[in-house]
Nucleic acid binder design. Sequence first.
DNA 1: CTTGACTCCGTAGTCGGGTACGGAGTTTAC
DNA 2: GTAAACTCCGTACCCGACTACGGAGTCAAG
Lengths: 140, 140
Amino acid sequence: MKALTIGALARAAGVSVETIRYYQRRKLLRDDGPRQGAFRVYESADLIRLRFIRRAQTLGFSLDEIAELLRLDEIDDRVEARAMAQARLEEVERRIGQLNEIRDALASLVSCCEHTESPAPCPILHTLLDDGFLSRPPQR
Amino acid sequence: MKALTIGALARAAGVSVETIRYYQRRKLLRDDGPRQGAFRVYESADLIRLRFIRRAQTLGFSLDEIAELLRLDEIDDRVEARAMAQARLEEVERRIGQLNEIRDALASLVSCCEHTESPAPCPILHTLLDDGFLSRPPQR
DNA sequence: CTTGACTCCGTAGTCGGGTACGGAGTTTAC
DNA sequence: GTAAACTCCGTACCCGACTACGGAGTCAAG
């Protein structure tokens, strides 16, 4: 249980001090912890919490969802936590499905372009003109 | 070649008038077209261009990239257009790979939670505490 | 006891792709 | 001829997750 300054905590978690402050404002981390003199002191529990936040982000949870996950952890509500993970899983699967369609569309555009002679109506740009293309869901 | 008002064009493309104006500001659509009286008139070429933009967005191109694609179309540079589609394809494939990892991680979290008895250390929330998790790339 | 690094806190700006608002002018239908 | 609907244009605001900035206070090393 060694004490950390906010800067040391940031370095340990691989985030910036600004990010930690931002999480405090968002109530993901407490900003009313103990102080030594004028400066707040953090400890390993804070680091664990911070790492949890970053990993949950990697899984695609928003900060609001992560706040909820942390709350569920505190009240030990596993049913609800599992439901959130399940919902996220389904969302990811939907997204994978969309991206597969997009991949196929792009792949056929590319190969089609490769096999078309120069004076022909370039596929890439105008296959996109066809109707009944993919329905809309991009978001990168 | 029937003339359209901006409102009719918007309805035909399924976007809002505001969106069309926004694309004009971004130089994706021209805003110096002919007018009839005080109002600009649009025609099928504009509708085609607008649909192209929306379809390219569906494939995940940004508006800047779409501007570039439109430029390449004008100068008929198929090599570069194909390169952009190829790059986009690779990006999509990377993303699919990431999402597959995320899906697996979520799935194992969920099933693990389902098969753990209540007093045990709930998996969902603290598997996330393990080291060497996924490396960072979320973006929903 | 000074210097430099750090901390605290508040506010503002960034990105991308729009949406919203508001006032003034125009056009169309009745 | 007037009212409703539309257009034009500019500016401001939205989302999420930060990042940047600035001034003041504080702490640790030399």
